[in-house]
Amino acid sequence: MKPTPGLRRQIIQSLAVMALGIIGLSVIGSYVFYGFALTYLPGSISDSLVPSRVELVWIVCTIIAALALAVVVAIRLSRRLISPLNAVAHSLRDVAEGKLDARAPLDDQAMGETAQLVRDFNAMAERLQGMTREREFWNAAIAHELRTPLTVLRGRLQGLAEGVFTPSSELFEGLLRQVDGLGRLVEDLRVVSLNDSGHLDVQRIRVRLADELRAVLQAFATPLADKGFRLDAQLDTELEVACDAVRLRQALMALLENALRHADPGALHVLLARVDDDCLLSVEDDGPGLDSALAADLFEAFRRGEPSRSRQSGGSGLGLAVVKAIIEAHGGQAYCQPSAQGGTRFVLRWPLTPSR
């Protein structure tokens, strides 16, 4: 693609062309006029400072031609300058009125910075429209996640108030579980929102991370065994990491809960190791695996690999988003990849030494 000259260069070139054209018209035209007049109309040339009638006609014609050249150059230059600006201004008014699909047309004659302005405006409008769609999606998803526990709580409490249900420890334990679920949902939303705004802080202390994670594995040993999983943990017991151990335990819990809900029973491999100057924590299952198209958005909030299956097995769709938020707050990244056993390997990798 041929690069477009800058706006300053285009203005200088246009004004230079206009000045050279007027000078050329005046100087060269004068030589031609007087050469013709002296040859064919020798008596038409005035010997005084007052021009003759023929000279006056030539002067007027030269002025008109110079003005015409200046107008042509000005119109051409203003068209290339003003048209993109008017297009952006019109589209800005549409966006201000809520028409987020408004886009400024890019004229082929737009030059340099004005063409870039149109492209930047269209990119901004596209981003704004995408953010609006994402916000609407979030609002709908949050309302959907809150509706079920609130409906259960309201039904049980109304039944207690009307005497439909007999108060019992089992009923109150069920209500407490719904409240705990709401509390976890609110905390997950808080973590994800703080990370998106860049305000998720982690309290780093130097710990043997294997000791911290082992407590999580012990807590999940029984539920995993009941579902038919064989836990294989390979933890580097000598690895000391400056990290927020509480948050990393939370991340591992989310990965294990994800495996309990979605993975097929079988071997579940948990690895903690040092890779170069990074700490690596991974959880790998035996199946069923994920489509590569779904894996790209798996760590985004409310994005489920298989929505129907996720809804049947529970979960808010925030677990992996919380994992991503925690690792990004440590300066690392979270991703998933196919495993050699046909399943999925979830990888958390972050620097051993904090960069800030």
Rank of each mutant, 00 (worst) to 15 (best):
R8W: 07
R9L: 11
Q13N: 12
S14G: 09
A16I: 05
A16P: 01
I23A: 13
G24F: 07
S26I: 11
G29E: 03
L38C: 01
L41I: 07
I45P: 04
V54W: 15
V54F: 15
E55R: 11
L56F: 12
T62H: 11
L67T: 06
A70V: 09
V71I: 14
A74E: 04
R76N: 11
S83L: 14
P84E: 04
A89R: 15
H90V: 14
G98C: 01
L100Q: 10
D101H: 11
P105F: 07
L106R: 10
L106N: 04
D107S: 13
Q109I: 09
M111D: 00
G112C: 10
L117Y: 09
R119E: 12
M124S: 11
A125N: 07
E126K: 05
L128E: 03
R135K: 13
F137P: 00
W138F: 12
N139I: 14
E145Q: 15
T151K: 15
V152Q: 06
L160E: 04
A161G: 00
E162L: 15
G163R: 02
F165G: 02
T166Q: 08
P167S: 08
S169V: 13
V179F: 10
V186E: 08
R190S: 06
V191D: 02
L194V: 01
N195T: 08
V202M: 03
Q203V: 14
I205Q: 14
L209V: 05
D211A: 13
L217Y: 04
F220E: 11
F229W: 03
R230S: 09
D236S: 07
T237D: 08
C243H: 01
C243R: 03
R249D: 01
Q250H: 14
L252V: 03
L256R: 09
E257V: 07
R261S: 03
D264H: 12
D264Q: 14
P265A: 06
G266K: 07
V270I: 06
V270S: 01
A273D: 09
V275C: 02
V275L: 11
D278Y: 04
D278M: 11
L280D: 00
L280E: 08
G289S: 08
G289D: 04
L290Y: 02
L290K: 11
D291R: 15
D291P: 07
A293I: 13
A293E: 13
D297E: 11
L298C: 03
R303L: 00
S313G: 02
G319R: 09
I326T: 05
Q333T: 13
Q333F: 05
A334L: 06
Y335C: 08
S339I: 11
A340Y: 02
G343V: 06
R345D: 01
